[in-house]
């Protein structure tokens, strides 16, 4: 973090570096007692259109694998493992949704839902879907900070 901030100072013209400086790293996310996360993980407002892409793509969030969403009925095969997400933007606040997407176990203790912004504390962590052991101490999170913000922005559009 400090390094990124310094780089930002040294190269004030490189916008993306300045943006990166305000990103919250997975190990630095602050969850409140109920599991909510008040501050944007990327520092950039989420894009609901991009969030829809993350929600429906097998290689990204693939949220519909487990959750049904009426507004996404054009995408085939919604799962029924988790609760339907219709009205999620009315039932939950943005901070609560951010906490659930980043690490649902902070909100629902034994949730089956994977933690999308967590990099440590796994049993036999693998290198993606290769079946081989992961290299290094920390895994890349399943979604980036911005992808999480985008998903949260999309979920906020699902009003009752």
């Amino acid at each position: 973090m400090k390094r990124a901030a310094l780089l930002g100072l040294a190269l004030p013209l490189v916008l993306s570096t300045a943006v990166y400086a305000s990103e919250v790293a997975p190990l630095d996310v602050s969850y409140d007692d109920a599991g909510a996360v008040a501050v944007s993980l990327s520092g950039v407002t989420g894009d609901a259109v991009a969030g829809k892409e993350v929600m429906t793509s097998r290689g990204l969030g693939n949220c519909v694998a487990c959750h049904a969403v009426t507004a996404l009925a054009d995408v085939p095969f919604h799962g029924e493992i988790g609760p339907p997400l219709d009205g999620a933007g009315s039932r939950w606040s943005e901070a609560e949704l951010r906490g659930i997407v980043a690490n649902s176990k902070m909100t629902f203790e034994d949730s089956m839902m994977p933690s999308f912004y967590k990099t440590k504390g796994y049993i036999r962590p693998g290198d993606a879907f290769t079946g081989k052991a992961a290299e290094g101490d920390e895994l890349p999170p399943l979604l980036t900070a911005q992808q999480i913000e985008d998903v949260v922005a999309y979920l906020m559009t699902l009003k009752e």
Binding site: A65, M112, Y122, I123, P125, L139
Partner: peptide, 20 residues
Amino acid sequence: GQLELSCANCHEDNYGNYIR
């Protein structure tokens, strides 16, 4: 694994349900 799934998560708690 990174998805933190046990056999039981899918095959005891959710048999009969669809994942995608």
